[in-house]
Simulated assay, not measured.
Amino acid sequence: MTHLAPRTAPRRVVVISTGGTIASRWQGTGYAADASGGEVLAQAAVPDGVTVEVVDLFNVNSSSMTSARQLTLLRAVHEALADPGVAGVVVTHGTDTLEESAFFVDLHHDDPRPVVFTGA
């Protein structure tokens, strides 16, 4: 049994927003992660035939990504992939700890659908 959505149906992707530079905006004295996942997604080109569901999980600078937050992120990825209609997951993340979070999720990822990390 495959977990991938049929090609004729629109593909659903879940974007999990965690903050970082990709979600940072000028605060008058510096930048801080405060944009929602929807605000970040509004700057992206979404291909035709793809629908996106945004999960605003965190809105923290990447240096504040703790082990507890990584566990919460892992649970959110698993929850998104529990839906067989989801074609994949994109995690927006700060670059300071993106590698560590991606590695942690990869260690516990056995689903054939992709989990992609991106930052700015």
Rank of each mutant, 00 (worst) to 15 (best):
G30M: 01
S36N: 08
R25Q: 15
F117M: 08
S24W: 05
T66I: 08
F103I: 13
D111C: 06
V77Q: 00
H108V: 10
A68Q: 14
D96L: 07
D111T: 07
R69A: 03
V116E: 02
L98W: 02
P6K: 10
P114A: 07
V116A: 12
V50G: 10
V60W: 06
V13N: 01
T92S: 14
V40Q: 05
T66K: 03
F104G: 05
T66H: 04
H3F: 10
T72C: 12
E100C: 11
L107S: 13
S67T: 14
S36L: 14
V14R: 00
P10K: 03
T92D: 07
V50H: 05
T92Y: 06
T95F: 03
V77N: 00
H108G: 02
G85P: 04
M65T: 01
A45T: 14
D106K: 12
D34L: 11
R25C: 07
R75C: 10
D83F: 01
A35H: 07
G119M: 04
L71S: 13
S101K: 02
S24G: 09
Y31H: 14
V50N: 08
P10T: 12
L98A: 12
L73D: 01
D34S: 11
P112M: 07
R25M: 13
T51E: 15
V60R: 03
P114N: 02
V105W: 07
A35C: 15
V90G: 02
V54H: 10
P84C: 10
L73V: 07
H78F: 02
R12G: 04
G37W: 10
I22P: 01
T72W: 07
G38D: 14
V15F: 00
G119E: 00
A76D: 01
G30D: 01
V52F: 11
F58A: 02
A76Y: 04
E100H: 08
T95H: 06
A44S: 06
A5S: 15
T21D: 03
Q43M: 10
Q43N: 13
P84E: 14
S64N: 13
V86Y: 04
D110E: 09
L71F: 09
E99Q: 12
V105K: 00
V89Y: 06
S17Q: 12
V13F: 03
V14N: 08
R69D: 09
L4S: 11
F103H: 13
W26P: 10
V86S: 11
A87F: 03
L41W: 09
A44C: 15
P84Y: 07
S64C: 05
A42S: 15
A45S: 14
P6D: 10
A120F: 06
T51N: 12
R7I: 12
Y31K: 14
F117G: 02
A23L: 14
V46P: 02
D34R: 11
V115L: 04
T18I: 05
D48R: 08
A120D: 09
V89F: 04
H108W: 12
D96F: 05
A80D: 13
V14A: 00
S62W: 06
H3M: 14
H3A: 15
E99T: 13
T8F: 14
